[in-house]
């Protein structure tokens, strides 16, 4: 008997999958609306993205190719563990290459490479309710969504402008989907917000602890909230990636030594590697190769 024979395919039992699948279908039919579902215990802590894992487990089939990223990287403990989990319980092929994946489970980033039709991006969401920090009561936030009462959200953003001269929110920057629901894009940097708009890929969001699933179908309008006099802007970086020279990508700061030495490199490790393999070299990439 193999180890995998002790589990149902993709770990979840069929009744749970059906329940999650029904929630996913309604989420797709009502873009940006949070569908409640009965979250199950998974063999990993909540902080590891059990909502995303449950969504992936409910949609994945033997022919899928899975990529898992955490902050843009395929090689963090979280990403490696989730990839290994599905390789074991669903016997799927895994990859680090964005272009090869049919399902990409993510925490905190959207790949730099434009997603294609047929690809599915599954987000691990810690706090799905964008109005939660304004209103702690679920009954009230539900009412606000029902009545399309998003004035408080705009007030909060405008207070930012009054205080900082600009909207200070840089992560989990709220968006409006198809002109109706205000949605939390999960703690991705606002740099990634424009990638959600009219994406070719289906985007699914799972919040395990909060028991919510929501979705953005392909070719759906996703607009970051802003004001006429303070339009939405993404982060800009002063210099390109130190390893591959990429511009217009999201960069992470990496500390090099105790003396304050640092460099900025691609957060999307697959994109960086692909560029370096193609011969692109950044300012510190040359030195690295010469060592």
């Amino acid at each position: 008997m193999t180890t995998t024979a002790q589990y149902n395919f993709a770990y979840l039992d069929e009744q749970t999958k059906r329940m999650i699948r029904r929630a996913i279908l309604k989420a797709i039919a009502i873009p940006g609306y949070q569908v409640p579902f009965s979250s199950r215990e998974m063999p990993m802590p909540y902080g590891w993205g059990t909502g995303g894992v449950q969504v992936t487990a409910s949609i994945i089939g033997p022919d899928d190719v899975l990529k898992v990223i955490d902050q843009g990287a395929d090689d963090t403990t979280n990403a490696v563990s989730i990839r290994a989990f599905f390789a074991k319980v669903a016997q799927v092929q895994t990859t680090t290459r964005t272009a090869e994946a049919t399902i990409i489970q993510t925490r905190h980033r959207i790949p730099e490479r434009a997603l294609q039709a047929g690809q599915i991006l599954v987000y691990q969401v810690p706090i799905p309710e964008p109005l939660r920090f304004l209103e702690p009561r679920e009954t009230e936030t539900r009412k606000m969504h029902a009545l399309e009462e998003y004035g408080l959200m705009h007030v909060k953003l405008y207070e930012d402008i009054a205080r900082h001269g600009r909207i200070a929110t840089t992560y989990a920057y709220p968006v409006k989907v198809e002109g109706r629901y205000v949605m939390d894009p999960s703690p991705t940097p606002k740099f990634d917000n424009p990638k959600m708009h009219m994406s070719e890929a289906l985007q699914l969001f799972g919040a395990g602890r909060e028991h919510r699933i929501y979705a953005v179908p392909p070719h759906t309008e996703v607009v970051s909230l802003d004001f006429e006099d303070h339009p939405f802007e993404i982060q800009h970086f002063e210099q390109p990636c130190a390893l591959c020279g990429a511009e217009q990508v999201y960069l992470d700061e990496v500390i090099l030594d105790d003396a304050g030495g640092h460099m900025f490199v691609c957060s999307d490790t697959d994109n960086c590697e692909e560029r370096r393999n193609a011969g692109f070299v950044g300012s510190l990439g040359v030195q690295e190769a010469a060592e």
Binding site: R21, I28, I59, G61
Partner: peptide, 9 residues
Amino acid sequence: SQTAFRAVM
């Protein structure tokens, strides 16, 4: 069921 679900999705 998985294949049929993906068709519906």
